[in-house]
């Protein structure tokens, strides 16, 4: 199963990297989400996979059963899920906003911080990049 999970995570990484290399802002957002999934799987796979034995302490006991899943990896993933949701929410609104203001979602067209984008600034931007 470790192998299958690694395969799935690899596919997600590949898709995520590809999408984040796009010029369109929305695709970059999709890339970000895919990378988030991939990282969660990576973390999950770094601990031993144990089916059906969550790290819970049964009533009357002081420790979980001898064989149970690694709680630390789960705690880390829980944090990661929530944080990536925060990031997603922010980025979605940011993209929407940027699109409405700038009128494009092509990164190559976004060359200046001021609206409307002056020609001189465009030139400056090119020089700065060059």
């Amino acid at each position: 199963m470790t192998f299958l999970l690694a395969l799935a995570a690899g596919a997600l990484f590949a898709a995520g990297i590809y999408m984040i290399l796009r010029r369109s802002l929305v695709k970059i957002l999709v890339g970000l989400l895919l990378l988030g999934y991939a990282v969660n799987l990576l973390l999950f796979n770094s601990a031993v996979l144990v089916p059906g034995r969550p790290p819970l302490i049964p009533a009357g006991q002081t420790v979980p059963p001898e064989i149970s899943a690694d709680p630390l990896a789960q705690a880390l993933i829980l944090t990661a899920i929530v944080i990536s949701f925060g990031v997603t929410a922010f980025v979605v609104v940011l993209i929407r906003q940027a699109y409405q203001v700038v009128g494009t979602d092509d990164l190559n067209e976004m060359r200046c911080t001021d609206i409307p984008c002056e020609d001189s600034e465009l030139k400056d931007g090119k020089e700065g990049g060059a």
Partner: peptide
Amino acid sequence: RDILIAGLGGLMMTLLMLVVSYHGQDS
């Protein structure tokens, strides 16, 4: 070009995960 790079990246991550899974999973 991007497909190639992304593919390499995905392959690397898969391999890394497999290598890691063979070493020290007992925390």
